[in-house]
Every structure is written in C-alpha cells, then in structure tokens.
Amino acid sequence: MATAQERFLSDEIVDEIKSYIPRYPSLQAVTLPALHIVNRHLRYVPMQAVIEIAEILELAPAQVQDTLTFYGFFKQDKPHGQVRAWVCRSMSCAIRGGEAVLDHMCHQAGIHPGETTADGKLTVEYAECLGACDFAPCMLAGDDLHKNLDKNKADIFLDDLGIKAKKS
C-alpha cells in the first residue's frame, strides 16, 4: 500500500470506501460504491483513482475499469461541473417538450449534452427516464428534481447558477 503522501485518494475517501467492505461477502462488490464515493468527492474518477480502488479491493485495475466504463455515468478525463443537470429525453418528457428544453438549455449555456461550461459551473446531460413522468418534462440537478420544466424555468435555473443566458 502506498503511503498517504504518495496516494491520490485522500484518507477520508479511502476510509469511506473501506467502511463498505463489511456489507458484502466479496471485495469486488464494493466496486460500484467506491466509484460513487470517489465521484462524489472529486466529480470524476481518473485512472489513478481506479488503480487505487483496485488496490484497496485486491482487484486488477482492469476489473475496476471494466465496470466503470460500462456505466456511462462516470467521467474519467476531467471533472463534471459543480452542478450536473440531467434533462430527461425519454417518452413522457419528450412528448411534453423535454427535448426542446434540453436543446434550449444547451444553446443558452453554449455546450452540447455531456459537456461542461467553460467556468466549470454546469454540466448538462441527457437522461433516459428519471422516473418522474408525472412531472414531465423534468430535470435532476444535483439532488434536486425540477418539475414541469419549460424554457422560462430553464432560464431561471441558469440565471441562479450565474450563467448569462444568450438573448435569442
């Protein structure tokens, strides 16, 4: 095990990962919780983190990487924005204007889905069904569900983040 000075993951993160070990009969089962913990702290899971997770869980880094890449959820090249907003584009939201809201938000923020604004404040993602079809169209930003979205509400959301909406 590398010493604390050499390690990329902080003691706090490592301890949190280790606290999940008693929950499962196998170390590999902690992979997904570990990826979530790292992602929550760092907003991405770089390769060095994968290597250190593998070390804690006594796996090959490839095993952790294999799981990570299966879920499109984890970013590896650079952190996502301070707020990650998932705009639903599945059926119930799409037929009530969800795709128009997604396009509008991306246009106003000057990014494509999956990208982060230059100031690092916001990442906009498309989501496949957020399970809030009774409030369609909807968006999950951080832990907050934004219900019955329209372009106006999207503009207010961007304003609150300090992202200047373009005049269209």
């Binding site: 196998s26 997904l32 799981t67 879920y71 499109g72 496949e128």
Partner: peptide, 20 residues
Amino acid sequence: AAAYICGEETGLIESIEGKR
C-alpha cells in the same frame, strides 16, 4: 449508476457483485 439493464434480475445481480 444510470443503466436500464440493471433492472433485469441477473443484470442487477452482476451489478451488485461489482461487475458490468
């Protein structure tokens, strides 16, 4: 982690085990 296939019971089991 946002994957539809994890709702399939054996996909769910593999996901708990830490695999794809």
